[in-house]
Nucleic acid binder design. Structure first.
Lengths: 142, 142
DNA sequence: ATCTACATTATAATAATTCTAAACTATTGA
DNA sequence: TCAATAGTTTAGAATTATTATAATGTAGAT
């Protein structure tokens, strides 16, 4: 498991002070095998339940947004009622399970490269993202 | 210009009563050449300013959602802070101009067909949507 | 014309997010 | 080591978007 000093350095590098709260958040977010997708709500729950660390809501918002601005987190738009964040900040696509409301990362190999034929005058492409919505296939058969 | 009786019929067909408010909304939404992208806020403004029709906010929400449920409108997720709706309900992709916050429809021909290689067990694909974020190209040059 | 089910409305309620101002703390450098 | 200070956290208030409520109104069937 990565030690906290990694997080301290990481935070320092981008100019964020390594406070107790930010370190706890780093642990929750980045001390894991797989990419983590979450809403602010999920995160607050995890922090208070699992980490036994009560962090003010405002701090969670501030810190998540600080992380986002610094490129530690990426916001994903799926549902206009909820903000999802992703610890995988590289360009990648998603599946969204409409039954469970779960986000799943796509690998490079899951979706062929997207070819954009249209050009918008004076504009450059910042990102190309695909969202594949899936749901349980009820007519189970042949 | 399409006459209102078209809207009356249209509404009847899907089981919505053609009330004064819904007809006004139909006019704003569908009496236009091009696809219309809007937020609830945009729509309320248009109704009150251009159409001189004061409709209660609750009615606008209810009616937009009724239209959406019946397939007259499609919700587009771009920004978790705003709900965008689209009068083009067919499957299509979008450009999103991050400078102006404007949505632009893609034609079939603008983006090659997306090939999804991954399968999620027991799940079927409901939709595949591409969002291309663009912004002004400032390093104007060679 | 009357009835009934659905609509509209103003307003209250809720939920998500941001603001505020005071208290706190990590860093700097004397 | 110890202030000074600049950035941070916090509780709670404020704001914004959306939904619920309950009274009143209206379209469509009889």
């Amino acid at each position: 498991m990565p030690k906290n000093c990694n997080f301290i350095e990481k935070l320092r590098e981008v100019g964020l002070r390594p406070t107790k709260q930010r370190l706890k958040m780093c642990e929750v977010l980045y001390n894991r095998e797989k990419t983590f997708h979450f809403t602010i709500n999920d995160l607050v729950k995890l922090l208070s339940e699992k980490m036994n660390q009560k962090i003010s809501l405002a701090t969670v918002y501030n810190t998540v947004h600080a992380f986002e601005k610094k490129g530690y987190l990426k916001e994903i738009s799926i549902d206009s009622h909820k903000s999802y964040f992703d610890t995988n900040t590289s360009a990648h696509h998603h599946f969204f399970d409409e039954d469970t409301h779960e986000l799943i990362d796509c690998d490079e190999s899951d979706i062929d490269k997207i070819n954009i034929r249209k050009n918008i005058a004076g504009k450059k492409i910042n990102s190309v993202e695909v969202l594949v919505r899936v749901a349980s296939d009820n007519q189970t058969q042949k």
